[in-house]
Design a protein around this nucleic acid. Structure first.
Length: 491
DNA sequence: ACCTCGTTTTAAGATAAAGG
DNA sequence: CCTTTATCTTAAAACGAGGT
């Protein structure tokens, strides 16, 4: 094999013409890939297999039949039946079933190539290519949608180890190397089979695979705790109703879709006369809070300060102080990976009006609305964009983690959606944010809920560490830095 | 009739930023 | 303060062609 790297960035490589068989692909022969995926691989101490050689079965949705056949035989159903797993349901944090489509049982049976029974590796192949997830062993029946590979590995391969490989920088690099497609990236089966995976001993595979399995367990536990926290909140609000005392909230419900109801004149807020402001589900939540035994307070009254991030687009720089926007505030988590950076001076300027401190609450207000997250301890200072609000709380009245749970719950989310404005891009104005109704639960119950969320945060941290370690282990294997004594310690 | 492998088109969603 | 526009990303649908 002859090649000569003329330049790394931009990549310019001389290649032997024999290496270019049927397609001329400068991407495949990028200097970076030659360096890391060819040269680096040559010195790996473990055996290396082609993905295609360790796969028992590689299939997908379209393998079930022709398009005409699929059209005739696939029927979706609203919210019952068998979950139909699409790419958006696959995340780095396991399945996300918030937005789920179902197929009926008959369809599930007919789509036999894409049935899921646990233990399969899923691999997204279009769009955001290379998201992976191992289907948990004891899962319910599910059916796999298009644009995702269903991969069953041979029995002597630890599938969770392979998952860690795909999550590592080498797995990601292989995918990038083999991608194709003009409008949007895609990887075809033939290319997928070409990925080279180092296959170490069973013990090492298990050692790394166990970390991924452990992470999966902890994730489940975190989910369970979050659910418990929400249940406590639910119970509390449902159980402790005061007598109905606020006539202003009266309405007569007529029909759901379309939304028809009569509301009392007093109920109509003179700034909001649009019909969607008076939906039954929203009014129900409102009255639940109004009638809550221990009462509610407006958010503005339990905050020392409500403000938002800078309104001016800052000058981004390569390295500096972290700068985040609403897209970084995830469900009970802050994404510090896809961030921008600003200069210290600019950060200082922004902080004059909006200084983010531990224990404050970040709250998304443009685009994705209503996601709340406490700023955890042990975190470097950072600045926020206009799309994120900053709530500084009266700590004696409200537990910050309880408030996070409440705002992210159905009660919070629905209120946020209702109170925000803007047709295309929803915008939650600061003064409207202040109007959110927060039930003031007895402080012990607030703490109970808040502490569960604190535990969730710890678990999520542990999950991140485990996945990071698993990825690092794979990278160490490839780079020849894997410390074998780690394995011996366990045995 | 069924199966496999693949490409192309459509459209939704997120965000930045300008406009009124 | 609110709406409109632009741009980018990418999920998902739609589809073609050939083989057994």
């Amino acid at each position: 094999m002859y090649y000569k790297i003329l330049s790394k960035i931009p990549s310019a490589v001389l290649i032997d013409s024999k290496q270019i068989e049927d397609k001329i692909d400068p991407n495949y022969n990028n200097a970076l890939y030659i360096e890391y995926l060819d040269n680096q691989y040559d010195v790996i101490n473990y055996s290396v297999s082609k993905n295609g050689d360790i796969i028992e079965e590689l299939t997908d949705y379209t393998a079930n039949g022709s398009f005409a056949w699929l059209k005739d035989n696939v029927s979706y159903s609203d919210n019952t039946g068998i979950p139909f797993v699409k790419i958006k349901n696959i995340t780095d944090n396991g399945f996300d079933f918030n937005d789920l489509v179902y197929v009926d049982i008959d369809t599930y049976t007919k789509l036999k190539k894409s049935q899921l029974n646990g233990g399969e590796l899923l691999f997204s192949k279009t769009g955001s290519v290379g998201l992976t997830l191992v289907v948990p062993k004891d899962c319910d029946k599910m059916s796999l949608a298009d644009n995702i590979f269903k991969v069953i590995y041979k029995s002597d391969i630890d599938v969770h180890y392979v998952d860690a490989f795909y999550k590592s920088k080498y797995g990601k690099m292989w995918v990038k190397r083999l991608l194709q497609g003009g409008v949007q990236p895609t990887i075809i089966k033939e290319s997928f089979r070409q990925i080279k995976i180092p296959i170490p001993s069973k013990e090492i595979q298990k050692y790394i695979g166990d970390k991924v399995r452990k992470a999966e367990e902890l994730r489940e536990e975190a989910k369970r705790l979050k659910k418990e926290a929400e249940e406590i909140l639910n119970n509390e609000l449902n159980k402790n109703k005061a007598d109905r005392f606020n006539i202003k909230n009266e309405y007569i419900f007529i029909n759901d879709k379309p939304n028809i109801l009569y509301v009392s004149e007093e109920l109509i807020d003179n700034t909001r006369i649009e019909a969607v402001f008076y939906k039954k589900e929203d009014l129900e939540i409102d009255s639940k809070l109004v009638e809550y035994k221990h009462g509610y307070k407006l958010l503005k009254d339990i905050c020392v300060k409500i403000t938002d991030g800078t309104h001016k687009t800052p000058t981004y720089i390569e390295n500096g102080v972290t700068f985040i926007s609403s897209k970084n505030i995830l469900e009970d988590e802050i994404d510090f990976e896809n961030v921008k950076y600003i200069s210290k001076e600019e950060h200082k300027e922004i902080s004059k009006r909006c200084n983010v401190e531990h224990g404050d609450l970040l709250f998304t207000k443009i685009g994705r609305i209503g996601y709340a997250k406490v700023v955890p301890d042990k975190l470097d200072t950072f600045s926020i964009f206009v799309s994120v609000a900053l709530l500084k709380l009266k700590k004696k009245v409200i537990d910050e983690y309880f408030l996070q749970v409440f705002l992210n719950s159905e009660y919070g989310k629905k209120q946020s959606k209702r109170l925000s404005k803007g047709s295309n891009q929803p915008d939650f104005h600061l003064e409207d944010i202040g109007q959110l109704k927060i039930p003031i639960l007895p402080i012990e119950i607030q703490k109970e809920i808040g502490n569960k969320m604190r535990k969730v945060e710890e678990l999520k941290y542990d999950v991140r560490v485990l996945i990071h370690e698993a990825k690092q282990d794979v990278e160490d294997l490839i780079e020849g830095n894997f410390d074998m004594s780690k394995i011996k310690k366990i045995n």
